[in-house]
């Protein structure tokens, strides 16, 4: 429900005017009338404050509802990711996985990492990281060479 300040003011003002008209018609003293007007105005002020509180409460409720909706949306997207991971872990074949990806539009973790890596500019990779990767790969190559030598059974004689 929407409440704006202009409609609220409109409803209060005619009520005070009606009170002043009643005082003139009854012929009572001016002081008594003033008292009654003051009391009416205080009553109106109190009513106005109550209405203001009500409007504030409604605003707060609206904000809470919006926040809740945002949280709900986030939670739903996270659940989708979990479902994909669960699907990935259930030993699905690559073709099945590809079908699942095309159906859901969600990439698996490896593909998303690859697409992320593709998007990275090469200049952003530091030389330290590059040397670390090359060192790691050289160790891998040595191990690979040793395993190939063992597989082939080649001997060296000097």
């Amino acid at each position: 429900m929407q409440i704006n300040n202009s409609s609220f003011n409109y409803s209060v003002v005619p009520h005070s005017k009606a009170a002043k008209v009643d005082a003139k018609n009854s012929g009572q003293s001016l002081a008594g009338v003033n008292d009654r007007v003051n009391k009416a105005e205080q009553a109106l002020e109190a009513e106005k404050q109550v209405n203001q509180q009500h409007v504030n409460q409604q605003k707060a409720q609206k904000q809470n509802a919006q926040q809740h909706q945002v949280k709900e949306e986030n939670r739903q997207s996270f659940e989708l990711d979990e479902a994909t991971i669960a699907y990935y872990e259930s030993n699905a074949s690559p073709s099945q996985l590809a079908q699942h990806e095309s159906a859901t539009g969600i990439l698996t973790s490896d593909d998303s990492a690859k697409s992320f890596a593709k998007g990275l500019p090469k200049d952003n990779i530091s030389s330290q990281n590059q040397s670390a990767v090359s060192s790691y790969q050289s160790i891998g190559n040595l191990a690979q060479r040793e395993s190939v030598q063992q597989l082939l059974g080649v001997d060296l004689f000097a």
């Binding site: 082939l152 080649v154 060296l156 004689f157 000097a158």
Partner: peptide
């Protein structure tokens, strides 16, 4: 014999596959 390598300083290498390692080493 897989390959034989000779170097200018008189060193050499023989790469073999299979055979008895003891005899191959000894008969250099």
């Amino acid at each position: 014999i897989v390959r034989i390598q000779l170097f200018t300083n008189g060193a050499g290498l023989c790469t073999t596959q299979g055979g008895l390692a003891f005899f191959i080493s000894f008969f250099g």
